[in-house]
Design a protein around this nucleic acid. Structure first.
Lengths: 226, 226
DNA sequence: CGCGATGCTGAAAACTTGCTGAAATGGGTT
DNA sequence: AACCCATTTCAGCAAGTTTTCAGCATCGCG
């Protein structure tokens, strides 16, 4: 989860950055309105913490511009003034929430959680290993420009292998997690799917291969190592 | 736009209802937590204004229950206490915003506007995707000079697909949002409409197509990609 | 090396899921 | 009542997925 902090007061900016990093967000920090706007416009953030009073360009202005640019990133406005006017102004500009300084760190994190929750879950969108990427949203397996659609079970098997990175995944575990603990699935079912996946890995030209560790299971590795 | 007000104090409840009606929202009002939960659970509101202290069931509890039921309706919590604790509590329960009593009517309406804006119920004239434009006012789908009228349900399905841009929209979600959560609609109903829409997309000569992602849902994409 | 155990894979079968044309339904209008 | 239109229903087909199975390949052990 990526957060953009736009705040000119160095001490406060650092504090905000620190607080958010502790919550395991990836934080970028900029110190004036113009930079803030440019960064936020990229749309790659999951939330923006935006001071109202800023050099070069004020917060209201930035939010309005972002919304006009069709950037929907949630924005939390920050201001020293506790006036109703500026609250309403902020929310009406298209900001999603509003907080007055000073504030407790917990309040900040709670508000950011509330803002990011919506998109939240979905944001881990892909898994990577070596030169391949598994797109969680649509079950596509990608290597460079080439891609191929995986079926439901192929996807599940691949996901488990990638989740374990280089570790060995026992057949038994694949059966339990993909076919279910009650299932009648046999080893050969897994073998068939490993075979399907190998074909698809070859097709997209990946150097990643599925290695067989006899009697133990399978694991991912690059063809080179072996 | 439909709003649910859950407030036990009669005077305040009436005031809230009045304020929101003046803003042309359709307002339903209930006076205790249990009713509040039941009504909100229908998912048919665009926002809920929820008091924390309520007979039968408190506000935190209700939000938590709603989120557990996968109801994503934005909730604005209302409380007399200006304590940080209860703010955090409210937001972490899954509420989307928080306001302390007393408040100015303008602040309430500004916050509700902010909450409802986010779900994309924006009053735009039209929505665009690649070479097609959906005219919200008259339900026409346009590609260049060619246009065709969509029926009500065709329009709703198309709107949801376009709202999600490239993201996958599950059949289930289409059923819930177009046919309603209580409906008996089956997958085949959606399939039939997807089929209608494909014919119309073809008719207006768009390069946009509706892609099927087996077991997951549908999404828009240009014919080229695939 | 020879043998059994283990794993691989292509093809076919069995099954699921999705598509679509046509007909039925049903509400609203003329 | 006759018609129009949106919507639902249904049946058969198409496409995609999963299972099954047979035969071959490979491994490791004696």
């Amino acid at each position: 989860m990526r957060i953009l902090v736009v705040e000119d007061e160095k001490r406060l900016a650092d504090a905000l950055t620190q607080i958010m990093r502790e919550q395991r967000y990836t934080v970028d920090t900029v110190y004036d309105g113009e930079d803030g706007y440019q960064y936020a416009r990229s749309g790659e953030y999951d939330a923006v913490i935006l001071d109202v009073m800023l050099p070069k360009r004020n917060g209201f202005d930035i939010v309005r511009a972002l919304r006009r640019d069709k950037v929907a990133t949630p924005v939390l406005m920050l201001t020293a003034r506790d006036e109703l006017e500026s609250k309403i102004n902020g929310l009406d500009c298209g900001a999603d929430d509003y907080m007055t300084k000073p504030f407790a760190p917990e309040e900040l994190t709670a508000r950011i959680r509330a803002l990011t929750r919506r998109q939240g879950e979905v944001f881990l969108e892909e898994m990577a290993f070596e030169d391949i990427v598994l797109e969680l949203a649509n079950s596509d397996l990608r290597c460079g420009a080439k891609r191929i659609r995986l079926s439901y079970k192929e996807f599940e098997v691949m996901k488990l292998l990638m989740l374990s990175q280089n570790a060995i995944v026992p057949k038994e575990q694949l059966i339990v997690k993909v076919w279910g603990p009650e299932s009648e699935a046999e080893d050969n079912n897994v073998e068939a799917y490993i075979s399907f996946l190998r074909k698809k890995l070859f097709f997209i030209g990946s150097k990643v291969g599925i290695q067989t560790i006899r009697k133990l299971g399978y694991r991912l590795g690059s063809e080179a190592e072996a």
